[in-house]
């Protein structure tokens, strides 16, 4: 708010100056207007992203308070604890579930994106809107409806038993498979959209040229479409894999809480164990892991813009 009168002042000032020093004033007013554009977003980022992250980082080196919160006493214990065997097993399990979900999302999303990208503009818009629309409703509600479908006495098991397809109800939920299903379901959208965008951007002339030269459909897909859509595939994989490590409520709801994932481990430190510094240390590890993946993504030629 304070910048506005300054700006007024500079424009008034400009009227009384000689043409010789006008460029200098121009650059001043340009600078001021630039600052006006930058300050709000910088303040926002500083207050809501940078300071909290710094707080998490500082907290991860502090000692725990047994009633929650922290004691300002430096320690490296939290990071030692991060790498104990029990916790390493949990990361392994999380990464495994994350990878499975990513692969399933990719297998579903790619053909769908390919199909959509070949449609006309209106059909494209409708199809993509249909992909996005479910995310407007609460994800927990959607997970609980999966449970109604999948549980032992749920819709699917009842129907399969009635038609005599199975004798015993299938265990489709409250296990690792249930977690992977819930995770893929919630994150599928983040795989479809980047892949669709990269497919949509492919120059159609390339495909026509290949057709003219007698390439088969399969050859075109293999030589042109898939290579050119790789940035979207990478972007989608990152956007599915990283959140999957943190979505603790999916393993609580769909897995019945019997397996702990990285997100659950962090949540437990704040909600149950009252070990905030350890929770902060795992969060820092998760951020570092994310950064490593992003660097790899950029090295492979991915653009940060593709990640939204």
């Amino acid at each position: 708010m304070m910048e506005i009168p300054k700006n007024d002042f500079s424009t008034k000032f400009k009227k009384h100056t000689t043409p010789t020093n006008q460029p200098a004033h121009n650059s001043i007013s340009e600078k001021i207007s630039k600052w006006i554009q930058i300050i709000p977003i910088s303040l926002w980022m500083l207050l809501l992203v940078v300071i909290p992250l710094m707080y998490v980082l500082v907290m991860s080196f502090m000692s725990r308070n047994y009633y929650g919160g922290i004691v300002y006493k430096f320690t490296l214990n939290n990071y030692v604890q991060v790498f104990n065997w029990q916790n390493l097993k949990i990361y392994g399990q999380s990464i495994w579930i994350g990878l499975m979900s990513t692969i399933i999302c990719l297998l579903i999303a790619y053909p769908f994106a390919l199909f959509t990208a070949q449609k006309g503009p209106i059909a494209k818009m409708i199809l993509i809107t249909l992909v996005i629309v479910p995310s407007v409703s609460n994800s927990l509600v959607r997970l609980f409806s999966w449970i109604t479908l999948l549980r032992r006495t749920g819709v699917i098991n009842t129907i399969l038993e009635k038609i005599g397809f199975i004798k015993q109800p299938l265990a489709m939920v409250y296990n690792t498979g249930g977690i992977v299903l819930g995770m893929s379901y919630l994150l599928l959208m983040f795989m479809i959209i980047p892949i669709f965008n990269s497919l949509d951007r492919i120059d159609h002339d390339l495909i026509e040229a290949a057709e003219d030269l007698g390439a088969s459909k399969w050859k075109i897909l293999q030589e042109i479409v898939i290579p050119l859509s790789m940035p979207g595939v990478f972007a989608g994989c990152i956007m599915v894999f990283i959140p999957s490590l943190g979505y603790f409520f999916v393993s609580d709801v769909m897995g019945g809480g019997t397996s702990i994932m990285m997100g659950n481990l962090i949540e437990n430190q704040f909600q149950v164990s009252r070990n905030w510094p350890f929770g902060a240390a795992i969060s820092v590890m998760l951020i570092v892991l994310t950064m490593i993946l992003l660097v790899l993504f950029q090295r492979r030629g991915g653009k940060m813009d593709d990640l939204g």
Partner: peptide, 10 residues
């Protein structure tokens, strides 16, 4: 107690 619990759950 937390340690016993998280070993149990994990």
């Amino acid at each position: 107690i937390d340690e016993v619990w998280s070993n149990f759950k994990g």
